[in-house]
Design a protein around this nucleic acid. Structure first.
Length: 260
DNA sequence: ATGGTAGCGCTGCTA
């Protein structure tokens, strides 16, 4: 089972690129973030024509997450279903059962800056995600949480750790939230496949020609439960999808699981 | 040099 994640930075602007990528990567499950669409504007026909069922949750301006699946799509949960009312938070997570695997597509808040209230909101959001995972599965269960975490797990995942000191994406509190998910029983599937490799990034700022200079960060992650970690046979960051005309600023990331 | 690019949508916000 090939499970992919891609922050597309507007599905309306990126539909052609997404269709093209699905055409050759043929993921079984594709998690999207930053669709920037309302549910009624989701291009369902185009996706269905490619052989996928889909579930989307968005407010139309910012955020917006989706799950596309050609191995079944059931038990859809939007947001965290924890009784709290925060639309901006809810449009950043969606979960579905895809072929027996509980898949969650997440768009973790950016945080803006360490002294901004949005940073505190980011940390709270990560705590809610942790609670959701703990409530809905176990390390022995088949579950995947993938998406744009807006966190670089370690300094190895940042092109210039020095220049990011004091910034979001690398701060200790947010990394501790990610570590807590790992300690709970999730595995960073991509890093497991490339334990010693540097410069494997998934996002490059549009500005300054950063992509072509190799200046990026690895912030798009595929976390799988320990039960699934042994089934990971391959993982890839598709840099080609970051090239060419009108790319997203993120590359798609996928892992192949040796399960039925 | 407090910049730069992209998307949304029409002004400035978000990333």
């Amino acid at each position: 089972m090939r499970i992919a994640t891609w922050n597309v930075n507007s599905l309306k602007a990126r539909l052609g690129r997404v269709e093209e990528w699905i055409g050759y990567a043929r993921p079984d499950v594709l998690c999207l973030q930053e669709t920037k669409l309302a549910d009624e504007a989701f291009p369902g026909l185009a996706i269905e024509q490619l052989g996928y069922e889909w579930a989307h949750h968005g407010d139309g301006r910012w955020n917006g997450v989706a799950i596309l699946s050609r191995v079944g799509l059931a038990d859809v949960v939007t947001g965290f279903d924890d009784g709290r009312d925060d639309e901006a938070a809810e449009t950043r997570a969606i979960t579905a059962n895809c072929g027996g695997v509980q898949v969650t597509s997440v768009y973790v808040p950016n945080g803006r800056s360490l002294d901004h209230e949005m940073y505190q909101w980011k940390l709270e959001w990560l705590d809610r995600l942790h609670a959701f995972v703990d409530r809905t599965t176990t390390p022995d269960g088949k579950a995947v949480v993938c998406g744009d975490f807006n966190i670089a797990p370690t300094d190895r995942d940042v092109y210039s750790p020095k220049s990011f000191v004091g910034s979001t994406h690398v701060s200790e509190p947010e990394r501790k939230r990610l570590d807590a998910l790992i300690e709970w029983g999730m595995v960073d599937a991509f890093r497991e496949q490339y334990p010693d490799a540097d410069r494997l990034y998934s996002w490059w700022d549009y500005r300054g020609g950063n992509f072509h200079k190799g200046l990026g960060m690895r912030i798009d992650l595929v976390l799988v439960t320990k039960a699934l970690a042994g089934s990971v046979e391959f993982a890839l960051m598709d840099r080609n999808a970051r090239k060419g005309t009108a790319p997203s600023d993120h590359a798609p990331v996928f892992v192949d699981l040796a399960i039925a």
